[in-house]
């Protein structure tokens, strides 16, 4: 249970980090919070030759709200994102979901962007980014590109990050006025990975009818799954809309699998129940 040997790099700037990553290519891995990478190394599931530690790149520790977007830098820890008052005011979903990520001691070190790159289908933040149609900015020695959530999560534990790239920032768009969000999940213990989790985003018209409603799910597919709930609830008065129908709609769309934590049937049941509850909660928050 000890990590394999590796060469350690601690660049002092983003430019230096990109130079090292360009040189080490597929044999180089970024070390952010280490809350997913170090368990992987300790269990000898990977043995990268080089680790590029970004923990001294203070320039990447930002959480900022501007022009309708919450920007989260690669060194912003889960705990900092959760605490950030401006980010909460603009986008309550970030705090609502991050509070379910692991335990405080892990949130003190793990990063939001690291969680996105790690692309665990049981992780909250990839689903949040997908629900909001956000994106991730990737930098390499040869330039930058911004990848939308829909193309970023490629498969279980696989993101669109290429060798030599550093994810510098995630962009979470703020939903339009009149929107509300909620995050609900079921896990064995608070802080454990969810057996099923759901985030709902509703947007209401001026007369409090449902203009738009979407949900994103964790632990019921290989990548974060989003479902448009409009078919079940659009146009209805938000407070009396049939959220159970929205739950049934979602349950028919997801493709959960059996594993040691839960059966597929139980997960599908949770999708229906949690969607209905989260829909109502999102309306109450709008």
């Amino acid at each position: 249970m000890k990590p394999p040997a590796f060469t350690y790099h601690r660049p002092a700037s983003v430019a230096d980090a990109l130079a090292v990553l360009a040189e080490t290519g597929p044999d180089g891995k970024v070390l952010a919070g280490g809350q997913s990478l170090v368990p992987v190394l300790n269990m000898r599931l990977a043995a990268p030759g080089h680790l590029v530690d970004i923990n001294r790149l203070g320039e990447l520790a930002h959480v900022t709200v501007d022009a309708g977007v919450v920007r989260v830098g690669a060194l912003a820890r889960h705990a900092a994102v959760e605490r950030d008052a401006a980010a909460f005011a603009a986008l309550p979903l970030l705090r609502q979901a991050t509070g379910h990520v692991a335990h405080p001691a892990i949130r003190n070190r793990g990063t939001t962007v690291g969680s996105l790159v790690h692309a665990d289908p049981a992780a909250e933040l990839p689903a949040v980014l997908s629900l909001l149609s956000g994106s991730v900015t990737l930098a390499s020695a040869s330039g930058r590109r911004t990848v939308p959530a829909g193309e970023f999560f490629v498969g279980p534990l696989e993101s669109a990050l290429r060798p030599g790239e550093l994810a510098v920032e995630a962009l979470f768009p703020v939903p339009p006025k009149g929107s509300g969000t909620a995050w609900l999940e079921v896990s064995r213990r608070r802080g454990d990975f969810a057996v099923c989790g759901v985030g709902v985003l509703v947007t209401l018209s001026a007369d409090r009818r449902v203009a738009a409603a979407r949900a994103a799910y964790v632990s019921v597919g290989p990548t974060p799954l989003t479902v448009d709930l409009a078919e079940a609830v659009a146009g209805l008065p938000a407070d009396t809309a049939d959220w159970a129908a929205a739950g049934a709609l979602a349950a028919a769309r997801v493709r959960p699998e059996d594993d040691i934590h839960a059966t597929a049937a139980y997960r599908r049941h949770l999708v229906a129940v949690l969607t209905a509850r989260a829909g109502k909660a999102a309306v109450a928050n709008a």
């Binding site: 350690y8 280490g34 368990p39 530690d53 705990a79 001691a105 003190n108 070190r109």
Partner: peptide, 21 residues
């Protein structure tokens, strides 16, 4: 959680950190 220590005052897992870092 047995290995939890305070790093600059905040609890962290010491088994998930490299000393050099």
């Amino acid at each position: 959680g047995a290995c939890t220590v305070l790093l600059d005052g905040e609890p962290v897992r010491s088994c998930l950190l490299f000393a050099v870092s």
